[in-house]
Design a protein around this nucleic acid. Sequence first.
DNA 1: AAATATTTGCAACAACGTTTCTTTTTTTAT
DNA 2: ATAAAAAAAGAAACGTTGTTGCAAATATTT
Lengths: 139, 139
Amino acid sequence: MDSIVHILKQNNLSVTEGRRKILSLFLNSNGALAHADIEKNTDGHFDRVTVYRTLQSFVDKGIIHTIPTSDNSIKYALCKNDCWEGHHHDHHVHLVCTRCGNTLCLDDVVTPTVKLPREYTIQQVEVVVKGVCKSCNHL
Amino acid sequence: MDSIVHILKQNNLSVTEGRRKILSLFLNSNGALAHADIEKNTDGHFDRVTVYRTLQSFVDKGIIHTIPTSDNSIKYALCKNDCWEGHHHDHHVHLVCTRCGNTLCLDDVVTPTVKLPREYTIQQVEVVVKGVCKSCNHL
DNA sequence: AAATATTTGCAACAACGTTTCTTTTTTTAT
DNA sequence: ATAAAAAAAGAAACGTTGTTGCAAATATTT
């Protein structure tokens, strides 16, 4: 069976054209995608609202995760670890390339441990590195 | 001389009522502020546009810095280190409290070093911790 | 293949942010 | 202290981003 369909079924999502297409965009992209990227790559084929709802349901199901940014643009990327409904485990570092603008998940780079004064409780650590990505460095 | 006026002059900003008031909000707040927070605390006394422009000019001058979030809401906080025009140096960890919702600069917690494969270049590391802040933990 | 459940698209709305232009305020120079 | 010049504020209009309610269309279940 098509792996895209498989992922959707596995997550109890009915298989629709929009979900298939949007999920395939993530599977074929090596970086993170924003809502606008998806609109661009589907050429207005789906309603804005549908795209928002699809992204939200993918996040809810643990198929994709959000990446924090400083510029009011939520980016989404595939979860490659063991995420499931209501339980994300994306303990990797994110890189925002200042040359090409892409946002990448560095799946092999584990988020460093942060030590806070004991009055604080840590629940989750997000690390976003601004820098230059592999391909831009090779230019 | 009033320290607020001093900061503005030092940064070549003319001293206006709006800038004085907004800067004082930052000086009197222990956490980060979003545009909406400022509107709320000035009670519509200043035009929305003025607030946006003031925040932008403060960022440009290195008086405040932005904090990345996962929810499309830019937060701003005072720069306490040596930031100046076009040159931010906020190497501290940010905490988003999941109880009170506040975002705090943990000025004493230096961002950990991150080691990337040598194909990448690091320019800046942003660390945002989700957890519980001091005061919420003491409740 | 029909019944049911889910999703989509549309319309309207609200929040967020930007741009242009005129008026007001601040700063500078006299 | 005052007039001229420079900068900022306010107002209106616009564009983008994201949400909600509802009717029509599409998937899923039986």
